[in-house]
């Protein structure tokens, strides 16, 4: 298993420039103010910094609360980077673009 991770890490570096896909999952809770803000901020960040190479999935925990357990979500909204590995979480409404980009490793720390 360790080997697999290492391999993918290597791939990650190689592929970033070549336009790797970013698979992001946003957990929200209905239409609370922060959930709406998070949706809007995510859209904006992806369009500006990951144009054409992202895929987002929005999970409304009010509709399907059982999904919170899978990614061990505690606070909402939370953004989860599914791909590229490793899995990363950014908690909050994504209002601080810089923090999000650093958290997602879109820009180096």
């Amino acid at each position: 298993m360790n080997r697999k991770t290492a391999k993918q890490d290597g791939k990650k570096k190689g592929q970033k420039a070549a336009g790797e896909m970013w698979n992001l999952r946003l957990y929200i809770a209905g239409e609370t103010a922060r959930s709406i803000a998070a949706l809007r901020n995510l859209q904006k960040i992806c369009d500006e910094h990951l144009p054409g190479k992202y895929h987002t999935e929005v999970i409304d925990l009010l509709e399907s609360p059982q999904l919170a357990a899978g990614d061990q979500i505690l606070a909402v909204p939370t953004l989860v980077r599914m791909l590229p590995p490793p899995l990363k979480k950014i908690i909050g409404d994504l209002s601080n673009t810089e923090r999000v980009l650093v958290g997602l490793d879109v820009v180096p720390r």
Binding site: P65, A68, A69, A75, V76, P77, G92, S95
Partner: peptide
């Protein structure tokens, strides 16, 4: 995130599964 007011819901796990508090 909570301090900064960026969170307004919590998913709390319990015996009956997760419940969402907005």
């Amino acid at each position: 995130a909570i301090y900064r007011g960026e969170v307004d819901a919590l998913a709390v796990g319990g015996p009956q599964g997760s419940r969402i508090f907005t």
